[in-house]
C-alpha cells in the first residue's frame, strides 16, 4: 500500500530556507529586475524617457527607475536622441566607463539610424560606436515603446549564460 510520504520532495524542516537552482537563473533573475539606466539624453527622446520615468508610465514597475547619472553605477545605457559626430566619441567613452555587464538601448530613429538627420554632422546610427541590444522605432517613441524595449531587454538578459561570462577570460 502506498501512503503519502511527506519526506519526499521539499521539506522545510530538513532543508531549511534553501532553494536549489542554477546559478545562471539566479544571477539573471537579479539582473533582469534591477536594470539601472544610464540616461544618455541627447534630444527630444529624452523628454519621453523622462515621461517613462515619471508616475504615469512609471518605469519602476520594471525595476529600472534608478536613473544613475554616473556610468560607474549603471547597467543599461539608453541613448535617447541625436548623436552628432562631435558627441559620438563621448558617448563611447561613457559606455566604456560602465561596469560589466552592460547593455545599450537605442531609443528612437536618430539613435538607431541617424533618423531624419542624414547629415554631415550626425552619426548614422549609434551602433557604429557602441554595441546595441534593443532598437526602438519612433520619432520620438512613446514611453510605452521604451517600456516594451525594456521588457525585451529583460527577456534577453534572462537567457544569457551569465556564469560563463563571469569566468570568461578576455582574449
Amino acid at each position: 500500500m502506498v501512503s503519502s510520504n511527506a519526506d519526499i520532495g521539499y521539506n522545510s524542516k530538513v532543508e531549511g530556507g534553501v532553494i536549489v537552482s542554477k546559478a545562471d537563473a539566479v544571477i539573471n533573475w537579479i539582473r533582469t529586475h534591477s536594470l539601472w539606466p544610464m540616461p544618455m539624453g541627447l534630444a527630444c527622446c529624452a523628454i519621453e524617457l523622462m515621461a517613462a520615468g515619471a508616475s504615469k508610465f512609471d518605469i519602476s514597475r520594471f525595476g529600472a527607475e534608478v536613473m544613475r547619472f554616473s556610468p560607474r553605477q549603471s547597467d543599461v545605457m539608453i541613448v535617447a536622441g541625436t548623436v552628432t559626430y562631435k558627441m559620438a566619441p563621448i558617448v563611447r567613452r561613457i559606455y566604456d566607463q560602465m561596469a560589466e555587464p552592460k547593455w545599450v538601448i537605442a531609443m528612437g530613429a536618430c539613435a538607431s539610424s541617424g533618423g531624419m538627420y542624414r547629415s554631415y554632422a550626425t552619426l548614422q546610427g549609434v551602433d557604429r560606436i557602441v554595441p546595441v541590444d534593443v532598437y526602438i522605432s519612433g520619432c520620438p517613441p512613446r514611453p510605452e515603446a521604451l517600456l516594451d524595449a525594456l521588457i525585451k531587454l529583460q527577456d534577453k538578459v534572462s537567457t544569457e549564460t551569465s556564469t560563463q561570462n563571469l569566468f570568461k577570460v578576455k582574449s
Binding site: A88, P89, R92, R93, G114, L123, R128, I129
Partner: peptide, 16 residues
C-alpha cells in the same frame, strides 16, 4: 576627432 575611440571602433565620419 578622438584618436582612442577612432582606433577602438574603426568608425569614420562618413558622407550621408
Amino acid at each position: 576627432w578622438d584618436e582612442e575611440i577612432r582606433e577602438e571602433t574603426g568608425t569614420k565620419v562618413i558622407p550621408a
